[in-house]
Write a protein that binds this DNA or RNA. Structure first.
Lengths: 229, 229
DNA sequence: GCAAAAGTGTTCTATGTACACCCATGA
DNA sequence: TCATGGGTGTACATAGAACACTTTTGC
């Protein structure tokens, strides 16, 4: 291993909820876009989208730009995950990767650019990725599931208006466990993070549920005194 | 601002509990060691200990080495805090700092090297530091106080044997609020993270309290599927 | 014996969980 | 009118907060 200054890169784990192929009725499972590496090391293997940091952009800017360039997406939530820097994580040169994670809405994810070298995968069924990217995704999943329980990031998966059932299905898909609809309703309403609208969602097969919107006076998550992205 | 590749550095926020100067009876307040900058930018100002990353050491290794070099200390707890990388955080060149935070025991902190260019400060009463280091310390304090409430890191401030009152005083000092001794005792005991020993602490003015030790089958904190430091 | 901290017991409240039940709509 | 998800009510379990009370030591 050489002793030069490490190369610095930014990568992003991008999560979206999609219906599974096998069962269109399921509310969704977590998917993420990967890019195929077109040069060594790990040529041909799938990897997290990423790249170098521009001289006039912050780390978060670099992550957002990267997200836009590889998938044509913008995200409603972007947060730094971790900096990975063990000496042997890249075989050729020393690389330190600062990794972000992002949440995108399903409608955005639908029209996400997909190509020969960009493809979406189910987050819990990934192939063997380049570098330590399998570990990184695992950690991102852990953070997502943790943060789901004590913050309001679930809303980043939804559009402007949503029913409480849709919100509950986001929680259920991410946490992989069923939640009691009655109790879920009360818990969400007690946080005041959603506001009922006058509208109802028509066209369903049964009683039309009320539509809610997010209470903008709350942040999606409390990340303390960190400088705003 | 140039557009060269950013320089990469590792810094560490090192916390220890010490009795305040004014009142020797208080259990302690948070202190941290800073180093005086001996060159521009910010020459003469106090800053977090830090430096470049060696070619054959991981990020955590670099933080631990730095801690040892500047204060002759080893820490019982070391965790990555955040990577700071806004473009304007250093006036001359672009620097991305990966910051760690560490907890050291009071007995270690006592014999920590102090010199003309290394001095300890009360964490909530710092001078104006170099770069964005005031912000970084604020964020580290926020993380410490948060993690105090849902993990067992308090033990990193204590020695092998301790009384439950000593442990409670650690919590009280960090969280800056009094805790009910009776309830605290039950809560700690219910987590099984401490084990009662046969010994008691003699020499006090009153009923000698039982000494406990940490239950080593627990980690100080659950940081998920992160590779071990 | 007295003061004070160590340690135990009891009550009250808030929060989450389980689940029975009514409501409103499409077909 | 029936099936079904929307929505409300209620009872139980658990955890934390408040605080009265007993125990054990040094002086």
């Amino acid at each position: 291993m050489n002793s030069q200054a490490p190369t610095l890169a930014v990568s992003t784990v991008i999560f979206a909820l999609r219906a599974t192929d096998s069962d269109e009725a399921t509310p969704g499972t977590l998917w993420l876009p990967l890019v195929r590496r077109i040069r060594e090391p790990f040529e041909g293997r799938w990897a997290l989208p990423g790249g170098p940091i521009g001289g006039d952009e912050s780390l978060a800017d670099a992550a957002a730009r990267n997200l836009l360039e590889t998938t044509s997406l913008t995200s409603r939530y972007l947060e730094q995950l971790y900096a990975f820097g063990t000496v042997d994580r890249s075989p050729s040169q020393r690389v330190v990767s600062i990794v972000y994670w992002a949440l995108v809405r399903p409608d955005e994810a639908e029209r996400a650019a997909e190509s020969e070298n960009v493809r979406w995968f189910a987050a819990d069924d990934l192939p063997s990725l380049a570098f330590d990217h399998n570990t990184i995704v695992e950690y991102a999943l852990w953070r997502l599931r943790n943060k789901m329980e004590y913050s309001r990031i679930a809303h980043a998966f939804l559009g402007e208006r949503f029913t409480l059932t849709q919100l509950r299905e986001v929680y259920e898909a991410v946490l992989r466990k069923p939640l009691d609809p009655a109790n879920f309703r009360r818990q969400i309403e007690s946080t005041k993070s959603v506001v009922a609208t006058d509208e109802r969602l028509a066209g369903g097969r049964h009683r039309p549920p009320r539509l809610y919107r997010y209470n903008e006076s709350f942040d999606l998550a409390d990340n303390g005194p960190l400088p705003v992205l």
